[in-house]
């Protein structure tokens, strides 16, 4: 079962057994509490979003700022309630979220930051959790920083810890909201490759929000293209480039063709509004 079955663009083709998550006609409307008198404040952040993601699939979500990408992840993780529609988790509901900022707690050491989900949930015995944290740090190349505080780490290292913290939770689905958005270009490329390695190792389902089209193509099985006002899915593009992939893929014509296709899609959708 190496190849996860691909979902069609309508998002309904995944066999139930292989389903990680399915969204059916999900709507999200933000209604600010204070301004009942000003209905213009109402934002339709998600409009009729349907998407199904197979277990082990790497799906990216691209689209201009404000098109509802973060909202989509927050609806999935339950951080914000949806207005209408259904969300169906086939593979289990344990989610791990990686945010744009590392959001490490500065009074906790790197290890203690990794253990935050353990402190909240206590799914493992103390020594097991600690061993796991140690192994995680080694995998992230941060072994020697175990007892340092976040303030002593570079931005890239901090975000590695942020990713490790989500993985410590042993999530069925990894939700990543522009996780490399705050990093410089070189660190960003490196982190993308590291993420691919991690993904190829344990094949977690990944939902990856980014504003970089090449990044989305390089990493994903499929790219969900979203458009704003109201936030909806314009199209879902299959990326049938062979794996394992590396940065050298970026210069191939196939890669360029997919990037161009997404760019055209985004541009046409933008000018249509």
């Amino acid at each position: 079962m190496d190849e996860a079955p691909r979902a069609g663009t309508t998002g309904t083709a995944v066999a139930p057994a292989d389903l990680a998550v399915e969204l059916r006609h999900v709507h999200k409307r933000y209604t600010p509490r204070r301004s009942r008198r000003a209905p213009s404040q109402v934002v339709d952040a998600l409009h009729d979003v349907s998407l199904s993601v197979a277990r082990g699939e790497f799906v990216s979500i691209v689209g201009p700022s404000g098109c509802g990408k973060s909202t989509l992840l927050k609806v999935l993780s339950g951080l914000t309630p949806r207005t209408a529609g259904e969300v169906d988790f086939g593979g289990g509901t344990r989610l791990g979220t990686v945010f744009q900022q590392p959001l490490l707690l500065p009074w906790r050491t790197v290890t203690q930051n990794l253990l935050i989900s353990h402190d909240i949930n206590r799914r493992l015995a103390e020594h097991e959790a600690r061993e796991r944290a140690g192994a995680m740090l080694t995998m992230l190349g941060l072994g020697e920083f175990a007892d340092r505080y976040p303030g002593e780490l570079s931005g890239g290292m901090q975000q590695r810890v942020g990713i490790g913290r989500a993985l410590m939770h042993d999530p069925e689905i990894l939700l990543m909201d522009e996780p490399f958005g705050a990093l410089d270009a070189m660190t960003r490329d490196q982190m993308g490759m590291d993420l691919l390695k991690i993904w190829e190792r344990d094949r977690k389902t990944v939902l990856f929000v980014t504003h970089s089209i090449p990044e989305s193509v390089l990493l994903s099985d499929r790219v969900v293209v979203m458009t704003p006002r109201p936030g909806r899915i314009a199209d879902i593009i299959d990326v049938d480039l062979p794996r394992p992939r590396g940065l050298e893929n970026i210069n191939t014509p196939e890669f360029g063709a997919i990037v161009r296709r997404i760019r055209v899609l985004l541009n046409s959708e933008n000018s249509a509004h």
Binding site: Y149, G151, G156
Partner: peptide, 14 residues
């Protein structure tokens, strides 16, 4: 409050 004396590094820095 040892951490705030430590002048947290800005996260933009890689």
């Amino acid at each position: 409050v040892f951490w705030s004396a430590e002048h947290r590094t800005p996260t933009e820095q890689a």
